[in-house]
Every structure is written in C-alpha cells, then in structure tokens.
Write a protein that binds this DNA or RNA. Structure first.
Length: 720
DNA sequence: ACGTCTACCGTTTTT
DNA sequence: CGGTAGACGT
C-alpha cells in the first residue's frame, strides 16, 4: 500500500500520532481535531508499514455508532474487509469473548443479556422475595449500587463495610440478584465487562492466548473508561501488546456513571515507554468559538492542558440573549432558525442543546407552532419498546426456559387470568423445589394447585410456548418472530388498544420482523441465529426516531451532543442551578464536570453560537429568577455580544412587555425586560412592576443577588 | 382484572 | 407543573 495515502491528508501532529512507534501512545485529541481519523490511519499504518497482522489488532470504542464508523473508514482506507480485526464496543467485545468461552466463564451457552429495564425488574423481584421494603430501599438505588460495585470489579464478598445498613442491605441484594442471574443464565451490561475481565484474569490458557494474539490495542474516548474497563485493558496489554489511546480529559462528562478521568490522567505513569501527542488544531469552529471554549475550560484546575486553535478566521461573535422567560427563549430560538433558513440554509444544520430533558417541552411547543420540523434525540430506543420487548421475551423463554425474567414478563400478557396470586404460588413452588419458574409452573399445572380456571390457563400457556417453539423448526428468523406474534395473540392484544398507540405498536411489530429479516448473524457463526439476534437486540438497542432523514432541527441534551457538530448551535437555559445543575454545584469535582459539559457544548458549534438564559423560569411549577450561568461570565467580552431586546423586530411576548412603568416623573421611565443598573446591586433586568407614581415598585433580577422588589422613587436605578 | 386516584418526585445515558 | 408507579376500589 502506498504510504502517502495514509499520511498525505494529515497535519504534523496527526502524522506523528499515526507513525510513532512506542509501547504506549496517548493522543490527547481536542474537540474537532480529527481523532477518529488518527485512529483509523494509525491502524492502516500498523498493517501497511509495520506489517502487523490484522487479527493481532483490537480497537475498542464505547458506542456502536463509533465502532461502525471506524470499521467503515478502515475499510475504505485500506480497501479491504476489517473482518479479521477485533473492532467493537467494550460490551460487544466482552460479549464475543463470553460467547466463545461460555463454559470457562461459567455461563450456559444460551445465556441472555439483560438490559437496564430487565435488570431493574429482576432486582425488584429479588428484593420482594427478600421482603425488603421498597419504600425504604428503592430498587433503583440497589441497581445503582450493584452496577457501581461491578464497575469497580467487586463481588459481594469483596465489599468491605462496618455493618452500615445501607451497604450491608444492598450487598445482600447484590448477592441474591447475582444468584438469580446465575440460575437464569442472565448477564447484565456491567456483568458482561466484569465476567470478561474475570475470564482473562482467571483462566490461564485464555490469558496466554489473548495476550499473545493481540499485539496492538487501540482505545477511543479513553477518558470515559471505568474501573473494570481499565483493568481489562491493562490485563490484555500486560505482556507484549502495545497500546494506543485517544481521548480528551476536557470532554470527560460521564463521571457520574463510573467513568474515571484519572484513567487518562495517570496513563503516563502506568505504562512504560509512553509518549503523549496533543492534537490542538481544530478544523470545526471559528476563532471566536474556540476562544470562548478555551476561556471557559481554563477555569478547571485538574487538566492535562491543551489549547485549541484554528486557521479559520474569527467569525461572528457569540451571541448572548437574555430572554424574559422560557417561552420567550423558545420564541427567540424559533425566530433565529427561521432567519437562518430564509438565508437558504437548512434546518438540519441547527441544533438546540440543553442540560436536562425537561427543557425540551417548551422549545418543542414553539417549534411546532412555527411549523419548524425538529427531531428530539433520546427517549425509547426501538428494541426498548414495550411491545418489542414482550415479543422478544416470549422468544427468549422459548429458547431458554431457565429465563425467569422472560417468564415473568410474559406469563400474563395478554391477560390470561394468571394474576399476582397465581404467580405467587408458582414462585413459592420454585423456591420450595429450588427450580426455575418454568419448571415450577409445570408442577403447579400438573398438580392443579391453582383454581381450575387458572390451572387450565397455565396449562395452555405452557403448551403455547412449547408448541410455538416446536413449530419454529428451521424457519427463518423473521418468520419465527411473526409466528410468535400470532401464536401468542399479541397482535390482537395491541389491535384492541385505542387510537394512535395501537397503530404504532403494530408498525413496531412489523418492523421487528423486518429487523429479523435483515439481521446478519454471520458475526456469530457458532451461535443459533436467534440467539445472535437476541444479543444484538440488547447490545444495539437501535435508533429512537423514524423520520431521521428529513431536514429538521436537532434537539438534544448536551450529553448526547458529544461527538456531533452543527453550523448553528443554541445552548438554552444557561442559568445557575440549571447549568451548572443544582445537584452538581457544591462539589468542585462535579462542578468541573459541568464545565467540561459547557466546553463540549460550545465546541459543537461550527459557525455561530447562541447562549440563552432567562430572567424568569418556571421550574417544577414554581417561578424562579435564575442568575446568569457562570459559564457565560467566563467567556471574555471580546468574543461575545449581547442581543439587545429592543432591537428585536417582533411582537412582544407579553402585552405588558415594553409598556411604560410610570415612576412619577420623566427621569424614571422603564420597561419590563429592560436592563438597569443599581448603585449597590449592579446590573439587573426588570421583571415586574406594581403601583404608580411615588408608590411604584419594580422587581429587578440582579446578576449579583437575584430578584428584588425596590421602590422606584428611592432606588436610583439607571437605564443601561 | 381493570380503571381511577393519589402520592411522590424531579440531572445527565450507553451498553 | 406533569409524569408515573403503586395502591385502592369497583
């Protein structure tokens, strides 16, 4: 292969990163600096120039999207299939290992993956069986506790505590839950990683094999790795395997779900023969946007240090808009988008970013009103939808009768007179005989331990599952799915529902059969096609919206915006307590993570960035008078510009807005929404007023102290 | 077994 | 304020 093809399109730093020959390379890649490109070209370099065999390479990402993109780009650069390399997500590769060595991992060949929803159900059931009061000990918290322990590589026996009730209670739940999973052949997401780690750690023949096989490990988004992922990487690279990692400590925003920024910070000391290369040239944003981003992130203390720069010109200043309230915020954004489109540009170039999902509703209303097409990211994925999960639970149960989670999900759907009472009896039987629910149900049905009607019903259910599975024979996947939907009468159940929902459900089920038809099980030649499909459904929950190809405005949280870029970006709700969020303001570490989130948001913008905050916001049904976010204040004045309310050519948001407040004499004429200065409190915005003449009072939201009522006659306010 | 009422809660999310 | 989960009643 021609080396120039690999290197020509790269800048100096990128070229270094691609060609450097050390045992451990850290590429600190700023936002928009071409990190995926470096990763892909480095792999090409390793193969084409250093002569590494493709099967000796492993490349790990966090999301399916990233791994697909990497595969794709490698293939188009190398002009060959990437099939012999191990490229995938942490969970995908862990799954692959566990499938290949299920016995060694102490798992049945038929093991199933639990998604978070399934996991919570199982935990709830376990806790009920332990008669733990769910009001006092929320199952959600138990799940969080268990996953956190697993992310840190701790089994129940490894958890140290001095008898405090919290830890001991949840450790017990962990123990029982793990037991239930073992019996049912169930593996949750955290367990995939943990088990894959234990597998390599404890089975010497496998450790030797993989440590020898993999000669170069590449990891994307290293700042997001958690404890167990790190340990797994360390294990694989502890012999001769070289490692290249790419990441950006300034974009570490997932600390709250176990990611450890220290992993990237300490990398240099943890490995021998290391080299750090910084990619600081940004190809995405204008100079002003980068200045803003650099200035904000400079306020963080725990940084490895990096400064983005660009060859591009300064571009427009960043616009800061003080909206009166969230409706006006939404209206402003809608107007700007209209303007943008009228200039001949497209909706899909615009993104509205916010800190929390709750903010999307008002924004959505106004876009709808203005007939601006939009797409909201987040929400239920395809394979997470109730009807899809129920159908797949039937299939799971057919293929694996041990699967108690699946059994419970479907035993009374559609309703077949097997209510809580009947199920309790089955569960009791299962505990008594120490069997699965399926086996217990058989006993219960045979011995007719339920009411005659329920017994018959249970018998029919067992038969149904059994018979349907028999009928599968060697039918193609999609026909197995179709058969399941019909045999279980799920189609009729959903047809009975009223209105739009029924239609959506019907479509989703049709789409499920379709997904099965298109599914390619070649990645797992040793697995039954359906087993592979079920794993695929859990590991790649799919997209969440249908009309994604339409030209529409992109709305999403700041978190989901990571990795994306848009010519026009709005960051809404730039207010203290909302962003930085109230829950993350008190601890320095959490605040720094919020600031990194702001950095991520700012660096999404290519051409133009708007920061919007409100003077007044309804939050949980209460009026609040938020102060402007510190992150706006951290941006130097030289690159930002206030959008003046009175220069807006539009109808006022409220009839009273813009109306004169009569303060008695001509020197005291103010409007709602106007910015004023007070000798003691500094600048603020007029929110409200009451009374006339010498009794006139105004409410002003001050940047320094928040909202205050002042007597207009005494307050010595000046227009700004 | 299903619908209605109430009490509670309320960042961020991928796999 | 608005969604939801679980209790409670028909």
């Amino acid at each position: 292969m021609d080396v120039s093809l690999i290197l020509d399109s790269l800048n100096k730093a990128q070229r270094d990163a691609v060609t450097t020959n050390v045992s451990a390379l850290l590429v600190l890649a700023g936002a928009g600096s071409g990190k995926t490109r470096v990763l892909v070209h480095r792999i090409a370099w390793l193969i084409a120039v250093e002569g590494l065999a493709p099967h000796a390479i492993m490349a790990v990402t966090f999301t399916n999207k990233a791994s697909k993109e990497m595969k794709h780009r490698i293939e188009s650069l190398l002009g060959r299939s990437s099939g012999d390399m191990w490229i995938g997500t942490f969970h995908g590769l862990a799954h692959r290992l566990l499938r290949a060595h299920a016995r060694d991992a102490d798992l049945p060949d038929t093991f199933q993956i639990l998604d978070s929803d399934d996991q919570l159900r199982v935990i709830k059931r376990v806790m009920k069986e332990m008669t733990i009061d769910e009001n006092e000990w929320p199952a959600k918290q138990a799940m969080w506790f268990i996953n956190q322990q697993k992310d840190e590589g701790r089994r129940p026996k490894d958890i140290r505590h001095q008898g405090d009730l919290f830890t001991s209670t949840y450790t017990n739940v962990y123990y029982q839950y793990q037991n239930a999973c073992q019996v049912g052949g169930l593996v949750d997401f955290a367990e995939l990683l943990f088990k894959a780690y234990e597998l390599i750690r404890d089975k010497q023949h496998l450790r030797d094999h993989y440590q020898e096989r993999f000669q170069h490990l590449l990891v994307d988004e290293f700042q997001d790795t958690n404890g167990i992922q790190y340990a797994w990487i360390k294990l694989l690279t502890s012999k001769s395997c070289k490692i290249s990692i790419v990441g950006d400590d300034d974009q570490s925003i997932y600390g709250w779900r176990g990611a450890k920024i220290e992993n990237i910070q300490k990398f240099e000391n943890e490995y021998d023969d290391t080299k750090i290369i910084k990619l600081e040239q940004n190809y995405r944003s204008t100079g002003n946007i980068l200045k803003a981003a650099n200035a904000v992130i400079a306020n963080n203390l725990e940084r490895m240090g990096k400064n983005l720069w660009t060859d591009d010109n300064e571009g427009e200043p960043i616009s800061v808009y003080a909206a009166f309230n969230e409706q006006e915020e939404a209206r402003f954004i809608a107007n700007q988008i209209k303007d943008w489109v009228e200039q001949g540009k497209s909706y899909s170039e615009c993104a509205i970013l916010y800190r929390s999902n709750a903010q999307s509703r008002v924004l959505e209303e106004f876009l709808l009103q203005r007939q601006i097409p939009y797409r909201i990211y987040g929400g239920l994925k395809f394979f997470e939808r109730a009807e899809v999960k129920t159908t797949l639970a039937y299939v799971r149960l057919m293929y694996n009768r041990q699967d108690d989670a699946a059994f419970e999900r479907v035993v009374n759907v559609p309703a077949r007179a097997l209510g809580p009472k009947s199920i309790a009896i089955i569960r009791e039987k299962a505990r008594e005989n120490n069997t699965t629910l399926w086996q217990a149900a058989q006993v219960v049905a045979e011995e007719k331990l339920l009411t005659p009607k329920a017994s018959q019903s249970l018998f029919n259910f067992l038969n149904l599952v059994h018979q349907c599975f028999e009928d599968f024979n060697d039918l193609p996947l999609s026909e197995q799915i179709q058969l399941t939907i019909e045999a279980t009468s799920l189609d009729q159940l959903y047809a009975k529902e009223k209105g739009e929902k029924a239609l959506a459900r019907k479509e989703n089920l049709a789409e499920l059969a379709n997904a099965a038809r298109e599914f390619d099980s070649d990645d797992y030649p040793d697995l039954l096609p359906m087993t592979a499909f079920l794993a695929h459904a859990s590991l790649e929950a799919g997209d969440n919206q249908a009309q994604q190809y339409e030209d529409c405005v992109q709305m999403m949280t700041l978190h989901s915006a990571k990795g994306l870029e848009f010519p026009l970006v709005f960051m809404a709700g730039m207010e203290e307590k909302l962003f930085p969020h109230m829950m993350s303001m008190d601890e320095p570490d959490k605040l720094e993570e919020e600031r990194r989130l702001a950095y991520v948001g700012i660096t999404r913008a290519m051409k133009k960035l708007y920061l919007i905050h409100t003077e007044k916001r309804r939050l949980y049904g209460k009026e609040t008078y938020p102060r402007i976010s510190r992150f706006i204040k951290e941006i130097p004045d030289s690159v930002k510009q206030d959008v003046r309310l009175n220069s807006q050519i539009e109808q006022p948001a409220f009839s009273q807005m813009g109306s004169q407040i009569n303060g008695g004499d001509d020197s005291n004429q103010f409007r709602l929404g106007q910015t004023v200065a007070h000798p003691k409190f500094g600048n603020g915005v007029i929110l409200n007023h009451e009374g006339d003449g010498s009794q006139a009072r105004v409410q002003v939201n001050f940047d320094s102290v928040g909202a205050k009522w002042l007597m207009l006659a005494y307050a010595r306010l000046e227009a700004v």
